[in-house]
Amino acid sequence: MKIGLYILLLLSTFSFSQEQDKAQLLASKKANDYVFQGNTLIGDDDYVSAEMAYRKAISERPETTEGIYNLGTAYYKSGAYNEALYRLEQAVQTASTKAEKHKVFHNIGNILMKNKQCKEAVEAYKSALRNDPTDNETRYNLGIAKVCAAEQKDQEDQNKDDQENKDDNKDQENEDNKEENKDSKDGDDKEEEKNKDNKEGDDKEDKKDSEDKKEDGKPKDDKEDQGKEGQDKKEEQKPQPQPGQLSPQQIESLLEAMGNQEQKVQEKMNAEKQKGVIIKTDKDW
């Protein structure tokens, strides 16, 4: 009884395995047919229909590298580089042979160059050469990618230096503005202090004038009286001119008038002498 059940189980397993193999073969055949259809459509530049065919191939057999790779190629030729890169990165995971990996990495490098990602393209071409060191086309593309990556690095360094210089200039400008604002503030403070001092001086002057006015309204003190009496005494002590005599002031005025008259006479005589003088001029040869 047990032996019969065991044999029946083996037969069932064998039968299920055969059915599974048939299904896989059928799916593989359909996938290949779709891939072939997609390749034909790409040859006719019908990238939209080719994409649909490759998608069907992947749906029938998701692990098929050829379908994913060709779909990525279709995206690449149609200019959809981001979609192409996504599909080729999928193809890297499903590729089983070095030849397949070489093709995938080579095309990934091409897409990265289209996207101006030169540094990343260098690594992709290196990976392609690891799987096929004899491909001169990949080696040539690697050289181009290295030159591009070096130029991009130089440009990045230049932009970085320019930005640093710009930041330094901005910081210096801010410092200059701070210093200028500080000097302006100090000047304003000095001007305010000067105005304050002037105001205090004006207040003192006004106060002094007010006090002087008050003093003018008050009776003069004894000291001022004494000064006036002394002045009067000096006037009394001056010699008074006698009748018929000139006072000292009159004598001084008379002498001054005589001196002026004599100066005029002298000037007239000098003018008369100058009339007969002849001015000679030297002749140049």
Rank of each mutant, 00 (worst) to 15 (best):
L5Y: 07
I7K: 05
L11G: 11
L11Y: 05
S12R: 10
T13G: 13
T13I: 14
F14W: 10
F16Y: 10
Q18C: 11
Q24W: 12
L26M: 12
S28F: 04
N32E: 07
D33V: 00
V35N: 00
F36Q: 09
D46F: 06
D46A: 12
M52L: 10
S59K: 14
R61N: 09
T64N: 09
E66S: 13
N70D: 05
A74T: 11
G79L: 02
R87G: 03
A91L: 01
V92Y: 00
Q93M: 06
A95L: 07
T97S: 14
K98M: 05
K98A: 10
E100Y: 00
H102R: 06
H102M: 09
K103I: 07
V104Y: 01
H106R: 13
I108K: 00
K114R: 14
C118R: 02
E123P: 00
E123K: 08
Y125I: 01
Y125H: 03
S127I: 00
T138P: 02
R139D: 11
N141Q: 10
V147G: 13
C148V: 03
E151H: 13
N159Q: 14
D171F: 08
D171W: 08
N174I: 10
N181L: 11
D189A: 14
D189F: 12
N195C: 04
N198F: 08
E200Q: 09
K204C: 11
K218L: 10
P219F: 04
E229Y: 00
D232G: 02
K233G: 07
K234F: 06
E235N: 11
E235P: 04
P241L: 06
Q242V: 07
Q250K: 15
E252C: 03
S253W: 02
E256L: 12
Q261L: 14
E262A: 10
Q266R: 12
A271Y: 07
K275T: 12
G276K: 15
V277I: 15
K280G: 13
D282P: 09
K283N: 05
